[in-house]
């Protein structure tokens, strides 16, 4: 009996694989996420040194040698984002006061937990680039977590988390979700041009910008190459608002509506899908947020 089974094992295996590959929908493969996590952990000791070596050989985007300057630039970026957030918060509170007067409930602000983590692997498919990060549920990562890179550049959201690892999907990944953003027209002014950006699959985001006119002159207010675009998407945690999506690289007329503009935005950090480390921000919810 045993020899017959061993002779048929390859055939049985191939049939089983064909069924899994061709007939079982993706939602029934979720058990494989557990296996992926375990394999990722096993591969991390050898993968991460190679990632760091690769980043060093590539001369990766932001130089980490001048740490003081980098910290200074980050501080400036943080203060700028905080300023815009506070001004936006002021505008929101004004509206809340008006809403309270008509009896609506107030929404509380949202503190975050910050965690720096290394990237130990990348999705091996060009069709779906993801980053595998050495931080998971045990370190407080939740489905609400998102990642940023130096300069408060938004990297992406956590799409899967295991006890000690998590998977990030970069905002520039092909097939990714559309993002609501804002083209900042002048420094410190949170009232910019709203836009909806989708990933192009070539490391950039592209999408239409709202058509707005100057009330004084009726001239069209248009985006300019080099302006900063910030995240202003209600589907993302509040803590992510006004973080950087990138800079306007190109402005073109919309093919469907020539009077409207379409912008191409390039992230300020090159190669979001090849970073060697990220900073994870996790909004702190409910009881945990109380002082």
């Amino acid at each position: 009996m045993a020899p017959a089974l061993s002779q048929r094992a390859p055939t049985i295996t191939v049939v089983l694989l064909c069924v899994l590959a061709l007939a079982v929908p993706a939602r029934f493969h979720s058990w494989a996420d557990w296996l992926q996590d375990k394999v990722s952990l096993l591969a991390a000791p050898i993968a991460q040194p190679l990632v760091l070596a690769g980043a060093w050989l590539r001369g990766a985007g932001t130089s980490m040698t001048d740490e003081a300057q980098l910290a200074y630039e980050e501080k400036i970026g943080f203060l700028e984002s905080e300023l815009l957030r506070q001004r936006q918060e002021n505008a929101r509170l004004t509206q809340v006061i008006r809403d309270l007067q008509s009896g609506l409930e107030m929404v509380r602000d949202q503190p975050v937990r910050v965690l720096q983590a290394g990237v130990f692997g990348y999705g091996t498919e060009a069709r779906s680039p993801v980053l595998r990060v050495q931080a998971g549920k045990e370190q407080g990562v939740t489905p609400q977590s998102f990642a940023i890179a130096p300069g408060l550049q938004v990297v992406g959201r956590v799409v899967a988390s295991a006890p000690r690892t998590c998977t990030l999907k970069p905002i520039t990944a092909r097939g990714g979700e559309a993002l609501a953003g804002m083209v900042i027209l002048s420094q410190g002014n949170p009232d910019g041009l709203r836009c909806t950006l989708s990933p192009t699959g070539e490391g950039t985001l592209r999408g239409p910008v709202e058509d707005r006119r100057d009330p004084a002159t009726s001239a069209s207010i248009e985006p300019v190459v080099g302006q900063t675009v910030r995240l202003d998407d209600p589907t993302w945690p509040k803590a992510a608002r006004m973080l950087v999506l990138g800079r306007v690289e190109r402005v073109e007329p919309s093919p469907d509506q020539p009077l409207r503009k379409v912008i191409t935005v390039r992230p300020t950090v090159a190669g979001l899908d090849r970073l060697s480390e990220v900073v994870l921000w996790t909004p702190i919810m409910g009881e945990e947020a109380r002082p």
């Binding site: 394999v39 993968a47 190679l50 690769g54 130990f120 999705g123 091996t124």
Partner: peptide
């Protein structure tokens, strides 16, 4: 596997 994850794409 380490080479694939750490070197191939990055």
């Amino acid at each position: 596997l380490g080479l694939d994850l750490g070197l191939s794409k990055p």
